[in-house]
Simulated scan of single mutants.
Amino acid sequence: MSPTSKPGAGRTFFVADLHLTDERPAATGRFFRFLEEEVAGADALYILGDLFEAWVGDDHDEAVAHETARRLRALADSGTPVRFMHGNRDFMLAARYAARAGMTLVADPARIDLYGVPTLLMHGDTLCTDDTAYQAFRRRVRHPLTLALLRHLPFSLRRRLARRARAGSQAAKADKPAAIMDVNEAEVVRVLREQQAARLIHGHTHRPARHAHAVDGRDCERWVVPDWYARWGYVVCDAAGCALRLEDL
């Protein structure tokens, strides 16, 4: 790297499942340092969902929401595009907050050309097809009519509903086998085939790793982005390929 080059130049970063909240300042501080020390000058930053612990609307009032918007806007204004994909915790994040944060909203899934490799980006929850109860809930809560209704409810009621939903989700997880909450291998192969992608990058499962998949005689790879609870990390890609970084918080 030349003395005049920027730290992240020629690289694209992928994060997910940060679950930022005022109650977890260590993760928030680590994220802000990551933006300054690692991502500055990068080709792009992709946030693949669950940036926040819970998001009940763009009138979200946690301090972390305001500071995160400021930091991401500064990164975008410096020349590094910031792209955001909804997760299961922040699917109500909409255009108003995205504009404040300088983020471009991207669909799930999104297929991009990543340094010449057709790459599929997903949050990852739709790959967990064995969890039929969650998939049914997801379809209901993501329906446009449901979203429209939720956005018209008072903020305090939306926040209570979100807390109740999180409590119910935690209780449901306790009764589910771990395998059900991981991706379905056949679904992974299906989406790679359908999208004609050689690489898949996703979060949601909190099981960071690189996996190899054979799809119609093609060698494909799947990168799982880490969460930011006890650990933190990201996937970074350049013209030579991708790598996973994982460290204690």
Rank of each mutant, 00 (worst) to 15 (best):
P3N: 12
P3Q: 09
P7Q: 08
G8I: 08
F13H: 09
D17Y: 07
H19E: 06
T21K: 09
E23I: 08
R24F: 13
R24L: 10
A27Q: 02
R30D: 04
R30F: 01
A40K: 09
D43Y: 07
I47H: 00
D50Y: 09
L51M: 07
L51Q: 02
V56T: 14
D59L: 02
H60K: 07
D61V: 01
D61L: 02
E62D: 12
A69W: 00
R70M: 07
R73I: 04
A74Y: 00
A74V: 06
D77W: 00
V82A: 03
R83V: 10
F84Y: 14
M85C: 09
G87I: 00
D90C: 08
M92F: 13
A94T: 03
R96I: 15
Y97M: 02
A99K: 11
M103T: 12
T104M: 11
T104G: 11
T104N: 07
I112K: 09
I112S: 10
G116F: 12
G116H: 11
T119V: 13
M122G: 01
H123M: 07
D125A: 09
D125K: 02
L127M: 04
L127R: 01
C128F: 02
T129M: 04
D130K: 11
A133N: 06
R140K: 15
R140I: 12
L145A: 15
L150W: 12
H152M: 13
R158E: 06
R164Y: 07
R166Q: 15
S169N: 11
S169A: 14
Q170A: 15
A171I: 12
A172I: 01
K176H: 06
P177D: 14
A178C: 09
A179K: 09
I180E: 08
E185I: 12
V189G: 01
E194R: 12
Q196G: 10
Q196N: 14
A197C: 04
I201W: 00
H202L: 10
H202R: 03
G203V: 08
H204K: 01
T205I: 05
H213A: 07
A214S: 12
G217E: 00
W228H: 05
W232C: 10
Y234F: 07
V236M: 13
V236K: 02
A239S: 15
A243M: 04
D248L: 13
